[in-house]
Structure formats: structure tokens, C-alpha cells
Simulated scan of single mutants.
Amino acid sequence: MTMYGYARVSTREQETHLQLDALNRAGCDVIFQEKASGASQRGRPELARCLLALGRGDVLVVYKIDRIARSLFDLLDILRRLEKVGATIKSVTEPLDTTNSMGVFVVQMLGAVAQLERSMIRERSIAGQIAARERGREPGRVRSLEKEVEARAVAEYREGGVTYRELAERYGVSESAVKRAVYRVTKGSDYLKRGKV
């Protein structure tokens, strides 16, 4: 078993000393660290290297969960990757530790919360579409996601590490609906004026 630590700060001006001290005290054999925004997977090459290094029986140790994941869905994706290779994760400052039964229970609760959120999002989306139709509003293609939900999906895509297909499954819509949502934000006003989305 190898204990891998991961430390990250969001800007070049910040330091990882506090995290590194805690990871060393936790007994980490190898520590990956970076000064980069968590806004995209491309901006976190050390995290990618760390996840690739993990194998069966290894433990990924972080100072806080927000150092490795920017959202619940991001965390669950990382946890699924760890489960696939037989590794576990532990936070030195929070009650997340999948090396024991209580930690596994916490992860299962997080998964249940995420599933509930997905179901509620789908229900709100469907209810919104029905209400719009009842008001006689049929302005071309009806958006599959509410504005707030769409913004969240686009933000997750821009953070990186997730595909259109994964987001479509997560939010209960088609891949093209997710792609249109992303394009509305990333392609700019000229793209919108051409009536593409």
C-alpha cells in the first residue's frame, strides 16, 4: 500500500505549506502538488498524474476535499475512478475516509444526495416545459435545462474532466442539449446571432 498526497492552491501567490505539513504528518509516501486553478482538468496536470499512479490498496490523502474536487459531481467522478482501480481516499480535516465503513457510508450518502438532485432537476425541467406549453409558448426548440441548471452544467464542463455524454446522463438530457448550452456561453454573441442555438 502506498499513500499518495495531493495538495493544491488556486493562485501562484498562495503556498501549499500548510497542506504539505498535514500530508507529511499523515504519512504520505509521495506527494503531488500544484499551484493552479481547479477550473479545468487541463489546469491540474499533477492531479491527473496522481490519479494515474494509484493502484489497488493505495490511499489518496488530501487536506480538504475542495482541494481535489470543485463540486459534488466532480468528487463522485473521482471516487468512481478510485473504486475502479481499488484505491481509497482520505481527508485529513474532514470525515471522509473510504478506508473504513463510516467513510464508505458518507460516500454513499453523497451519491444519494447527487441522485436526488438529478431527479429534482429533471422534474423541475419537465414541469417548466409543461408550464410553458400550457401558456402557449412554443418559441422554437424548448431548452432542456432551466437557466440555473444549464449554468451549472456549463460550469462543470468548463472545469474539465467531464464529457458532454457524462453531463447529459447526469442531468437527464441529450448530448446535443448540453453541447448547445456550452456553445451559448463559449461561442459568443456572433454565434448566437447566427441562430445556431
Rank of each mutant, 00 (worst) to 15 (best):
E94P: 01
Y164T: 01
G172A: 09
A151H: 06
E166V: 11
R67T: 06
Q19M: 00
V59K: 03
R152F: 07
E117F: 00
G188T: 05
G57M: 00
G188L: 06
E156G: 00
L52I: 10
R67E: 11
V182A: 09
L167C: 10
F32L: 05
C28Q: 07
V30Y: 11
Y191S: 01
Y191V: 07
R158T: 01
S37D: 14
E169I: 01
G57D: 01
E134D: 14
V154S: 04
A177Q: 08
S174F: 04
A127F: 00
C50L: 01
V113F: 12
Q115I: 10
A153P: 03
T16L: 10
L116C: 14
G27V: 10
S144W: 13
L75I: 06
K84L: 13
V149H: 08
K193H: 03
G43M: 09
G172T: 09
R135H: 12
S119Q: 13
Q41A: 15
S10R: 04
A114F: 04
Y183I: 00
G140A: 03
Y4A: 06
V197G: 00
E169T: 08
V185A: 14
V113W: 05
A168N: 12
F73H: 13
V162L: 08
S119E: 14
V106K: 08
T186H: 07
G86Y: 03
I126Q: 13
V185Y: 07
I89P: 08
A155P: 06
D74N: 07
E175N: 15
R118G: 15
L52S: 15
G161A: 09
V104R: 15
I78P: 00
P95D: 14
F32W: 05
L192M: 05
F32N: 04
L18V: 06
S119G: 14
A53Y: 08
I78D: 04
I68K: 04
V197A: 02
V59E: 11
R165D: 13
Y171S: 11
R124G: 02
A127I: 02
R70F: 06
S125F: 05
G140T: 07
E175A: 14
A114R: 01
Y171L: 10
E34N: 05
L18I: 09
I89K: 08
S176F: 01
L76I: 08
E156D: 11
I126E: 13
V92C: 02
L145W: 05
F73I: 06
F32A: 06
A22G: 02
N100T: 09
G111R: 07
R12S: 15
K193I: 04
V59R: 07
G103M: 04
L52Y: 10
G43H: 09
G111M: 04
Y63V: 02
L145D: 12
L23H: 02
E150Q: 09
V185H: 07
E159H: 12
E169F: 07
L96C: 11
K35P: 06
R158V: 02
L145Q: 12
S37G: 15
R44Y: 13
R44G: 06
Y157M: 03
C50E: 03
A153G: 09
A39H: 11
L110I: 02
R135L: 03
A177L: 08
V142W: 09
R133N: 03
A177K: 05
